[in-house]
Design a protein around this nucleic acid. Sequence first.
DNA 1: ATTAAATACATGTACATACATCTATTTTTT
DNA 2: AAAAAATAGATGTATGTACATGTATTTAAT
Lengths: 151, 151
Amino acid sequence: MKLEQAIQSDKFGTQVQKAALNVLYTAWWLKTLISKELKKYGLTHEQYNVLRILKGKHPELMCVRDIGNRMIEKSSNVPRILDRLELKKFAERSTSNIDKRETAINITTSGLQVLEEVYQKLIPVFMEHIALGEEDAKQLNTLLERMRENE
Amino acid sequence: MKLEQAIQSDKFGTQVQKAALNVLYTAWWLKTLISKELKKYGLTHEQYNVLRILKGKHPELMCVRDIGNRMIEKSSNVPRILDRLELKKFAERSTSNIDKRETAINITTSGLQVLEEVYQKLIPVFMEHIALGEEDAKQLNTLLERMRENE
DNA sequence: ATTAAATACATGTACATACATCTATTTTTT
DNA sequence: AAAAAATAGATGTATGTACATGTATTTAAT
């Protein structure tokens, strides 16, 4: 859907201003698409993100700050997200031996399992709904990174 | 900043998967950029968005559903955002005469005023931080809309 | 005309963001 | 070594999202 229809407006000033709205809208669209799938497994987008990050280092443990640095949304409140993951037994907290201020976080076996299941379901969702070839995607990545170049 | 640095990862699988993360990250980056400016005026990104929408129709009044349809994030809870705008006297609610179920919303003079002030401040912020020419922006818009083509 | 269905919006709940503050540790300074 | 500063992360608060439910009003069905 064109942005004009999506937000029922066609007063964008410049293409740059339209691009900003387009990025925001596309991000919402993507999040909704993914979240719909995750919901079947009782996961939110952010909880899934944290699990993916934990898996990336597994079997190493990670501290809260390291997870935060890898989050897409830097202002995410990681301790709170970990609270929910712990309740669902997808992650475990323990105090670090080296530095007792640090919390060492581990993904559980069922965390790894749910992650794998969800990922297998997400692939076809991506395939079906994201209408972009590898070449276009590459070009899109270039433009988005150019957009953020000034800090 | 390259996405690899931003989220401290370079395992993206495909360019399409990277593009999805890149869109999400850029949206967060944009929101943060804008919100920092809005904060000086006691506005959130979403409140600003609603005010912009109201201004677009002013002096016509709008109902809650019409505002919702124009929001970037379709799942926004418009009544709640209006609560805050009303407290700050930037918007007013009244019951529609034609259909008493509908709430007619009006932007106030100070709402229009704060919007104009903020907008004047946002222009240079855009100029300074969004490193994209009109041609690149146009191309970005094309790619984002192609991405969402399959619904 | 009366009842049923639909609509508009408000409101409740769980989760998340954005940001400030607090507590427990560790590191640095003196 | 003792005091001060820095750091890690938990927690509080206001706001927002996502979605379900409730209430008033209007429209459609019988």
